[in-house]
Design a protein around this nucleic acid. Sequence first.
DNA 1: AGGTAAACACACCGGTCGGTATACTCACAA
DNA 2: TTGTGAGTATACCGACCGGTGTGTTTACCT
Lengths: 196, 196
Amino acid sequence: MASVTTSPQLTPAARRVLDTASELFYTRGINTVGMELVAERAGVTKKTIYDRFGSKQRLVVAYLRARDARWRDFLAARIDPRATPRARVAATFEALDAWMREENERGCAMVNAYAELSEPGHPGRTVAEEQKRWLRDLYAGLAREAGATAPEELGEVLAMLHEGAVVARNVTGTADAALTARAAGNALLTAHGVPE
Amino acid sequence: MASVTTSPQLTPAARRVLDTASELFYTRGINTVGMELVAERAGVTKKTIYDRFGSKQRLVVAYLRARDARWRDFLAARIDPRATPRARVAATFEALDAWMREENERGCAMVNAYAELSEPGHPGRTVAEEQKRWLRDLYAGLAREAGATAPEELGEVLAMLHEGAVVARNVTGTADAALTARAAGNALLTAHGVPE
DNA sequence: AGGTAAACACACCGGTCGGTATACTCACAA
DNA sequence: TTGTGAGTATACCGACCGGTGTGTTTACCT
């Protein structure tokens, strides 16, 4: 079995397995999708999956990591590093808006996984925790750069708006939730002493 | 089988079933808890559960409704109807803070259920959708009463902060997330023209 | 020519899932 | 007194779960 975490080189079949598992886990939920279905949809035998990934748990971790990586790339491609911190905060919410319109019909994969994987030590939970910390620190860094008073707290709040927008869009069906959150974030930057 | 939704009168065994199922569904997740375990923990046979509730799906719905009702009662007991709208918004976040410290170690039951129940027509999803709409409308009503400009939008944003605080507390482990959200909500009321 | 990795096919494992069937006891009320 | 509703005990159902074992084929590399 190849190390899923360290080597991004996957065999063609493993690549197909990860792609189809990601799709299935995200849209139907991790616990409701069996390995047999993943194998069938990937055009692969269960044997191959277990040879490449070792266990369902590890496949789940690979799925979460891959999806997180996709989101970070998606975001990075939409942020101009030369823009002002304030503009970069707005761009982050705009990226979330675009992301949700394209590939977020079922809410945040990390939050969903956290709900499904209730065993305290499950490594998938760790991935989700890291992802949420990263997001909060991202906003906090921007708040600090912007010269906000209490940048840590502001970063936390911006991350809350971010998460809340995902829930609003997913459950309540609020189409422009991310843009509403962007406006609120903008107002909060001002309230924290950041010049327009 | 008694109608679970219309008649709140439950037989003693049914009461025990609902209580233990609520505990188990919330802490371990709906899909990972089997009916056999619920029966065993409630000191009841599976037959009794199916006589009273009919199916797992209906038991899940009863669980979600009951938990939502508990939260609404909890909140109502902590809101002074004579206080100003601004104070009531703050009190709502404070109630969330207290609620999370007491019985929210696993995040929002509605969001979790939404993650677990991926089948489009599952009645449990409807309960979650109604709950989120109710929360948003609650905040929007307070924003309107406070005389905020764009009260609907502000209500949406306050609900986002609310949801985001739950995620922050649950996944990131931010202990005072709800109070941080309260401060942000307060600032946003001001930004929306509500006098201090 | 020989070795190795990747994938195949297929059968099988113990265990659990949601749900049902049968037969019995007990309390209470018409 | 005679039902009736609530509950118990136990056995059972087909389907599916995650995971393993054995052996075969294909293709590329040395």
